[in-house]
Amino acid sequence: MGPVSTLEELFASPGEPWQRLSPNYRSMRRLTSVIGIGVVFLAGALVVGLAVGLWWLAGVIVVVGAAILIARWIVVGRNWASWGYLEREEDLYITHGVLFRTMVTVPYGRMQLVEVRSTPLQRAYGLATVQLVTASAATDAAIPGLLPDEAARLRDRLSELGEARASGL
């Protein structure tokens, strides 16, 4: 377990436990997966069955589609669980990703802009994204899937901290 534990520690929270995303975010991503994968494979199966008459092939397509959907279902779950963010005294920490894992840390003093966005789908699930902008385009700091209250709180708090700690470029 030795090596694994060092790798886990690499992305461990630097303080209190990570704040997690709302489960609504997982539901939303699962719904889009179900719709996306379902439409493609069902349409494929129907075309093969109705037009060519190979109903056994249609059955195979549906089974493959179901397998991919299950895999996707699990991946979305793991991806959702990998997200975490943490406001500490001086910096905001965000971590995410399963295969490609990242932890980005943005000092409050470096934030130029805090943005709250939400797409129609996100709104339907009562979600919003908080995006942080620094002078560097490489800073990839967005937290998707926050409840609107939490997003607004985070935005206000970040702007406030950003202002208090603002430092010249």
Partner: peptide, 11 residues
């Protein structure tokens, strides 16, 4: 001048 710090790890 550090804007942010990232740790990344691929497969």
């Amino acid at each position: 001048k550090v804007q942010s710090v990232r740790i990344t790890r691929g497969p």
